[in-house]
């Protein structure tokens, strides 16, 4: 019964994010096509749909994280879930969404790429690893954004100080991986992007732990 609650919670939170994605993806696609029709591919550095999308995916997931982190804890407790069960469901659903959203973007990118005016360059990510690893790195970055979002959302639900701490951690998480890339790459002789990927994975673990401490003993407001 308890595992079912985590499963149900994961499913329901994912459905909420998917519902949000049903709005986000078409709007983003329309914006991408419109920009390329108005300005032309060269003006926009021939940026591919996927390349532009992976950046906006992070923003979308950050926002979803804030919404779910701040608005659904009371819902979960009301349904008889523990804080820990909600936390697990939230972490799982973020991972599911990061994967689903990125793969959806890849598929749409293949279709959009067929349009004559669309960009084809994947130039905004300094990722020069194996394509599979690059994809994994992009999924991880999207997941990291979600974790940062839930940290902000849960933080502000707790109180302003935790919310502010969540914002600081988010800013740190958005800048730190790229800054660490050259350091790790040069130190270990790895391909470009490996440093970012390793740092992102380390930050994901750190934020998973932090999210638990933000949710643990949180007071439900009425």
């Amino acid at each position: 019964m308890n595992n079912n609650k985590v499963k149900n919670g994961t499913m329901d939170l994912s459905v909420i994010s998917i519902f949000g994605a049903f709005w986000y993806i078409p709007i983003f696609t329309v914006i991408y096509i419109t920009l390329f029709l108005i300005f032309g591919a060269e003006e926009l550095d021939n940026l591919s749909y996927f390349s532009m999308g992976s950046n906006s995916n992070r923003i979308f997931m950050l926002v979803m994280g804030i919404i779910i982190g701040s608005s659904f804890i009371k819902w979960a407790i009301g349904l008889g879930m523990t804080r820990k069960q909600f936390y697990k469901a939230n972490m799982y659903s973020g991972a599911v969404m990061a994967l689903t959203l990125t793969i959806t973007m890849v598929i749409i990118s293949l279709i959009i790429g067929l349009l004559p005016f669309a960009g084809t360059e994947h130039i905004n990510q300094q990722l020069e690893m194996h394509p599979g690893m690059n994809l994994l790195a992009i999924i991880s970055m999207v997941y990291l954004a979600y974790l940062a979002g839930t940290l902000i959302g849960t933080g502000f639900y707790r109180n302003g100080w935790f919310g502010a701490l969540g914002i600081i951690i988010t800013i740190f998480c958005s800048a730190f991986p790229e800054a660490m890339d050259s350091v790790i790459v040069n130190a270990f002789g790895l391909p470009s992007g490996a440093g970012t990927f390793i740092t992102v994975i380390a930050l994901i673990f750190a934020l998973i732990v932090m999210n638990y401490y933000f949710v643990k003993d949180i007071v439900i407001k009425i």
């Binding site: 019964m1 308890n2 609650k5 407790i77 008889g80 879930m81 523990t82 804080r83 820990k84 069960q85 003993d217 007071v219 439900i220 009425i222």
Partner: peptide, 26 residues
């Protein structure tokens, strides 16, 4: 309903502390 934790003393539901108790909260 375990919306918050007691500061002192003991609260039990069905003989157990309900706070973060997956068997009792439902």
């Amino acid at each position: 309903a375990t919306y918050r934790k007691v500061t002192k003393g003991m609260l039990t539901v069905d003989g157990q502390d309900p706070y973060e108790n997956a068997d009792i909260m439902p």
